[in-house]
Design a protein around this nucleic acid. Sequence first.
DNA 1: TCAATATTTCAGTAATTACTGAAATAAATT
DNA 2: AATTTATTTCAGTAATTACTGAAATATTGA
Lengths: 181, 181
Amino acid sequence: MELNPVAKKFVLHWGEMGSTWGVNRTVAQIHALLFIAGRPMNAEEITETLDVARSNVSMSLKELANWNLIRTAPLIGDRRDHFETSADVWELFRTVVRERKAREFDPTIEVLRECLRSGEIAKEDAAAQLRIKETLALMEALSSWASEMIRLEPETMMKVIKMGAKVQNFVRTGSTATNKT
Amino acid sequence: MELNPVAKKFVLHWGEMGSTWGVNRTVAQIHALLFIAGRPMNAEEITETLDVARSNVSMSLKELANWNLIRTAPLIGDRRDHFETSADVWELFRTVVRERKAREFDPTIEVLRECLRSGEIAKEDAAAQLRIKETLALMEALSSWASEMIRLEPETMMKVIKMGAKVQNFVRTGSTATNKT
DNA sequence: TCAATATTTCAGTAATTACTGAAATAAATT
DNA sequence: AATTTATTTCAGTAATTACTGAAATATTGA
């Protein structure tokens, strides 16, 4: 597949960002390619378009499958596997949030709970224990919040986001004072 | 500084998570250490506690400074630099969001704008252009939203988070139907 | 069941990133 | 100004991660 200049720019940039997003270049490039192509592609075609080793594509597709970012799309009259990603950027966003939460939050929440369960720290350093407690509380709150938010319909979620900090007008502050901006 | 078992567990775990969070082990460990210690520490002390090279600590402290996660705290009667991080987990959270937005979002928003500005893709693939447009719209919305949210007082932000998906009850849906779940 | 085609695995290599130790620089104290 | 103490820089090395190419495995169709 011959990429036009803009598609090429998009794919290459996505690939470079991959490392800051926690996936390698090829993985990010393939995802960008499938997104921009907007149709199922087979591994061979991906290999040629991105000019990387066939085996690299195979491994990267597996990684994208682990992220739930691609699915196979069998084509009639073609026995090769074809891969596609969602064209819906909201669905992709939800998936990434779900997966990053699982990788970046959940394991830490588990460990923080263990830290507090043991209670060993209690006598030695109450202040440190309190900070761990607060860290856990924040992470748990963000975690459940994220889980709830990604269940919303895209339209609703967009409205919530667009509303931004104004939502604070609807929370009970417990005081009569309004919050600073 | 001798770490108690829980503190050690906390620091080591933070270090391991570092790679999934986009910083290396030493950087993450130092930050965890300063957080759990709850007091300014000098580089020598950090070096001994974590058992890494002094130069590594120097570089890692610089990296933490780039992230705005530490500040120097001069102590009277001690001319060595001392470093501390905020004990307020909300402030830390805000900082991380701000910095990750700058690293993981802003550069991409810029490139997507360029992709659309050029207009080259328009004739060739209108559907692809639309997907880029939607990606940009989503990223811009999330970006401004994050900027607004991190300006809230911790108390307010916690309330907004605790409220979770219920906020959708306050957005104008444009239809009379209520959203699922 | 045998060829042709498609896909995966994995050992070896390349590239990148993290870390060390020594030397250079800087700052304070005598 | 010389010495001691503190800090940074950076070349070299170690460790990790990404990628390739070849071989092995699987799948389909003749």
